[in-house]
Computed example of a mutant assay.
Amino acid sequence: MVGLQADIAEIEPFWDAYDKLPIVNPTKWKFHETVFEEHYYQMLRLLSYELEKQNTVLITFGFSFSDEHILHLVQRSLSNPTLQLFVCCFNESEKNVMEARFSEYSNVVCIAFDEDLDFTKFNSEVFTSAGTSGAI
């Protein structure tokens, strides 16, 4: 038991410092775990509000949509027919996952690159594809 108490005493300063950081943990309990829950909630409301506006474009780079709250918020927002979502994936496997995740929505374009993602490659892909696929 003495060893366990020593371990707890060593890690306690870490948790004290960690609890002071503006971090929202990616768990279902994030609203209960953080002193920043109100800020997080407000940020999600702002995101939702912006996605409801006419002719909005959301571009994500390497975002997994693993956070259920953000995923569902974006999926609900996709009922806005003028919203266009571009999901830039870090590889073809992740692109397949994202295509399955957003398969119900015609206003989502998933893109994968063989190299690092950047806006130059994104622009080249989107604006080259737009003329042929009508993505934009």
Rank of each mutant, 00 (worst) to 15 (best):
L21H: 07
E50K: 14
N96Y: 04
N55F: 07
F14T: 08
H39W: 13
T34H: 10
S93V: 11
K53G: 08
V24C: 15
F86A: 01
P81G: 04
P13W: 11
V87N: 00
S77G: 10
G62V: 03
I23Q: 09
F86G: 00
M43Q: 14
T34F: 06
N96Q: 08
L51Y: 06
S48T: 09
P26M: 12
Y105T: 00
T82M: 02
S77I: 03
T82D: 09
H72R: 12
Y40E: 10
E38T: 14
E92T: 12
F86S: 00
Q75K: 15
V57P: 00
T27R: 13
F14P: 01
N96K: 09
L73I: 05
T60C: 01
N96W: 03
L47E: 08
F14G: 02
V109Y: 00
I23Y: 15
F90L: 10
H39N: 14
Q54N: 11
F31K: 13
C88T: 01
K28H: 10
F90D: 02
P81F: 04
L21V: 08
G62N: 09
S106M: 06
F90I: 04
H72I: 02
W15I: 04
H72L: 07
C110S: 15
E92G: 01
K20M: 13
I11C: 10
Q54G: 04
F31T: 11
K20F: 07
P81R: 06
L58M: 13
D67A: 05
N25A: 12
N55D: 12
L51C: 03
L58N: 01
L78H: 04
F63W: 05
C89M: 10
W29V: 03
Q54T: 11
R101D: 03
Q84G: 02
P13H: 10
T27W: 06
H69W: 09
V74M: 09
M43D: 12
Q84C: 02
M98K: 15
D19H: 15
S66C: 07
K28W: 06
H72Y: 09
T56S: 14
N80T: 04
K30E: 10
L85F: 03
I59D: 00
L58G: 00
R76H: 12
L78M: 02
M98L: 04
R76Y: 07
N107A: 05
N25I: 12
P81L: 03
Y105E: 00
S48G: 12
D16K: 14
M43P: 01
Q75F: 03
L21N: 06
S66V: 01
F31V: 05
S79P: 00
A100G: 13
Q84A: 06
E50S: 12
E92R: 11
V35F: 10
T56F: 02
